[in-house]
């Protein structure tokens, strides 16, 4: 509850600062619209915003699911197979040195203007953070516990399922939290590369017509969705790994 009021207070402060800046610098609405103008757009254009937000939300959620599944599989593959560590490991890192922004137009070219290409862009944008966090957690399972399991007669696969994976869940949770915040951004980037619907598309559309207030409204919608998704995933991760001491207090 206290965190909720903290968020409200900092949001109110930011809006006040924004209003003050517009007022004092006497900025025209096509440079920086005042908070009131943006609020009015939320009211007048709520149907447009909803329609486009729905698309981006769907792309983000599907991209999150796909990217997380890929990241989890990659983490397990890296843990269990030395061949995967040798061949997949460098590829994972390499794929991260290519920015999502550069890949998005290519993926839109290959998969089309529909939501599929954005889902793939979002998945590519997040799978690495999921894979690397999860793999780290799998590797860092308590060596003493693994020794004891060996003496008890555990096989490699029960060691993985009964010790390494449960021990890695908190790390996986923090990876998924970061992924949840980033998935909507990646989906919007995908939309910039070519789309006919979605918040990213709406931003470009509004920008081109100097409807900066609508662009701001779309941007805020995207940001709020990202925050809410991040908070929900964080909450679920904390609930599922309540035994982990570090899961309690982080932003």
């Amino acid at each position: 509850m206290r965190r909720f009021t903290d968020v409200l207070v900092s949001a109110a402060g930011l809006i006040a600062l924004w209003a003050l800046l517009v007022e004092l610098a006497d900025l025209p609405p096509y440079m920086l619209p005042s908070p009131w103008r943006v609020a009015r757009v939320f009211w007048t254009d709520h149907a447009t915003l909803w329609l486009n937000a729905g698309m981006t939300i769907w792309e983000s959620l599907a991209g999150f699911a796909l990217g997380s599944a890929a990241g989890i599989s990659a983490g397990i593959a890296l843990m269990t197979s030395s061949l995967a560590r040798r061949w997949l490991g460098p590829f994972l890192v390499l794929s991260q040195s290519v920015p999502t922004f550069a890949l998005a137009p290519l993926i839109v070219l290959w998969l089309g203007f529909g939501p599929e290409s954005k889902i793939v862009v979002a998945a590519i944008g997040i799978y690495f953070v999921v894979a690397s966090n999860f793999y780290d957690g799998l590797r860092r399972a308590d060596p003493g516990l693994l020794d004891m399991a060996r003496v008890m007669g555990a096989s490699r696969s029960t060691e993985l399922w009964r010790i390494r994976i449960p021990a890695a869940l908190p790390a996986l949770g923090s990876g998924l939290k970061v992924a949840a915040a980033y998935a909507p951004i990646a989906a919007a980037v995908g939309e910039w590369a070519g789309a006919s619907k979605g918040l990213g598309y709406l931003m470009l559309y509004a920008n081109a017509r100097l409807k900066i207030d609508l662009m701001f409204a779309a941007l805020l919608t995207l940001a709020v969705f990202g925050l809410v998704f991040h908070a929900l995933v964080g909450w679920a991760a904390r609930r599922l790994t309540s035994w982990a001491p570090e899961a309690r207090q982080d932003p």
Partner: peptide, 12 residues
Amino acid sequence: AWMAQSDLLAPW
């Protein structure tokens, strides 16, 4: 059977 200095309990 193996027993170590730390209890080696699975916290989950």
